[in-house]
C-alpha cells in the first residue's frame, strides 16, 4: 500500500493505492476558484494554498481508505515537473511522513503519473505510446518496456491546454477554458480553417502558437469591422485544428513505433473532441489498442502518482531525505528521435 502525494500545480492531492491499481482513497483539494480571480495560476498563491491543505489531505486519505501508517509500504511524491514552490510542499510533506514512520520514499515524475492514470482502466502492455496533453505539456512518449520512457515529440511553443486557455480568454471564457471551448466546439462548425502547424513536417513535434495567432487575428479583425463571429464556430474551428495536429502526429508516430497500446492522458485528454477523434482513428488499427485515462483521473491527482509509484517500487527506485523539487524534470529523448 502506497501513500501518494501530488502538488505540482493548483491541486493538493493525497491518495492511498493498493497494488498500483486499486484506489482506496484519492483526496483532491483544488484551488481553481482562487486562481480564477487572477485569470490563471499564480505560483505564490498556489504554494500558500498547498500548505493550508496538505496535512488535511493526508488525514482524509488515510481515514477514507481506513488504513493507518502501519499498513503502508511506501510514500510516493511528484517531484517534477511543475511549479517549484508548489512541488516543494508535497515533496517536503511526503519526505517528512516517510521519515517519521520509517517508510521508503518513491520519487515520481508527474508525467509518468499522468500516463499511469490509464492503469486504472487496464494493465499497460509494452511497447506502448502515450499522447500526453495538458496545460503545461504536449508530448508523445514511447515506452519500450516497463519503467522506460522516451520522448519522441513535444510542443515547440505552447502546450495544447495553454492554447485553449488563451483562446478562451479572447472569447471571454474564464480560466480554465478547456471544458467550455470543447462544449462550444460541439455546437459549431469548422468554418475558419485555421492553420495546422507542422502537420507535414518529418518529426513528431507540435506547435500551437501559429494557430493561436491566427485565432486572435481573426477575432481582432472582426472586432475592428464590427462583425460578430459565432463563438461556437470559432471554438469548433480551433478545436478541429488542435485535434487534427495531435491526431495526425500520433498516427505518424504509430507508423514508426508499432505499439500494443496508445495511451491518451493529461488534463486535455478529457477533451471530448480529442477522445472521439482518436477512437475513430484507432478503430481501424488492428494492432494498437486505445486506452484513455479515466475522465476523473485526467486532471492532476495523487492516485495516478501512486499507480506509477508501484512500478517504481518494483524497480527499486527510491529517494532519500535530500529529495528536492525539480521543476523542469523531463523524460529523456529517444536516442533515434529526430531531435
Amino acid at each position: 500500500m502506497i501513500l501518494a502525494f501530488e502538488s505540482s500545480c493548483d491541486e493538493t492531492s493525497v491518495a492511498v493505492i493498493e497494488d498500483g491499481h486499486k484506489i482506496l482513497s484519492n483526496i483532491v483539494a483544488t484551488q481553481i476558484k482562487s486562481h480564477q480571480r487572477f485569470g490563471g495560476v499564480v505560483p505564490e498563491v498556489a504554494s500558500r494554498h498547498h500548505i493550508e491543505e496538505v496535512t488535511l489531505c493526508i488525514k482524509d486519505a488515510l481515514a477514507e481508505a481506513g488504513v493507518g501508517y502501519d499498513d503502508l509500504d511506501a510514500v510516493a511524491v511528484t517531484y517534477g515537473p511543475g511549479l517549484v514552490g508548489a512541488l516543494l510542499i508535497g515533496v517536503t510533506a511526503a519526505k517528512t511522513v516517510a521519515f517519521a514512520h520509517n517508510l521508503p520514499l518513491i520519487p515520481v515524475n508527474h508525467m509518468a503519473g499522468h500516463i499511469y492514470a490509464a492503469r486504472y482502466v487496464e494493465p499497460i502492455e509494452f511497447p506502448a505510446l502515450a499522447l500526453l496533453v495538458s496545460g503545461g505539456h504536449t508530448e508523445l512518449v514511447y515506452m519500450p518496456a516497463e519503467n522506460q520512457f522516451e520522448i519522441i515529440g513535444e510542443t515547440r511553443d505552447d502546450a495544447a491546454g495553454e492554447a485553449y486557455d488563451k483562446v478562451g480568454r479572447v472569447m471571454g471564457v474564464n480560466y480554465p477554458a478547456g471544458k467550455t471551448v470543447d462544449e462550444w466546439a460541439h455546437q459549431g462548425k469548422d468554418t475558419f480553417n485555421f492553420p495546422r502547424a507542422m502537420e507535414k513536417d518529418d518529426n513528431f513535434d507540435f506547435s500551437f502558437s501559429g494557430l493561436k495567432s491566427a485565432f486572435i487575428n481573426t477575432t481582432h479583425h472582426a472586432d475592428q469591422i464590427g462583425e460578430t463571429l459565432s463563438k461556437q464556430d470559432l471554438a469548433a474551428s480551433f478545436q478541429q485544428a488542435v485535434v487534427d495536429v495531435l491526431a495526425e502526429k500520433t498516427q505518424r508516430a504509430l507508423a514508426d513505433y508499432p505499439v500494443k497500446q496508445l495511451i491518451l492522458a493529461g488534463g486535455v485528454a478529457a477533451n471530448r473532441g480529442l477522445r472521439e477523434r482518436l477512437e475513430r482513428d484507432l478503430s481501424s488499427n488492428p494492432t494498437t489498442h486505445l486506452v484513455k485515462a479515466p475522465l476523473k483521473l485526467c486532471g492532476d491527482n495523487a492516485a495516478m502518482i501512486g499507480a506509477f509509484a508501484y512500478v517504481a517500487f518494483k524497480h527499486g527506485v527510491f529517494a532519500d531525505a535530500t529529495l528536492n523539487a525539480d521543476p523542469s524534470l523531463e523524460f529523456d529523448w529517444a536516442a533515434d528521435s529526430a531531435k
Binding site: S47, I51, V54, T55, I58, K59, Y69, G85, L88, I89, T92, A93, T96, V97, A100, H101
Partner: peptide, 13 residues
C-alpha cells in the same frame, strides 16, 4: 514554508 511544512507534517503525522 519549508520549515512550517516540515514542522506541521511532523506534528500532524
Amino acid at each position: 514554508r519549508i520549515a512550517v511544512t516540515t514542522a506541521k507534517t511532523l506534528a500532524a503525522t
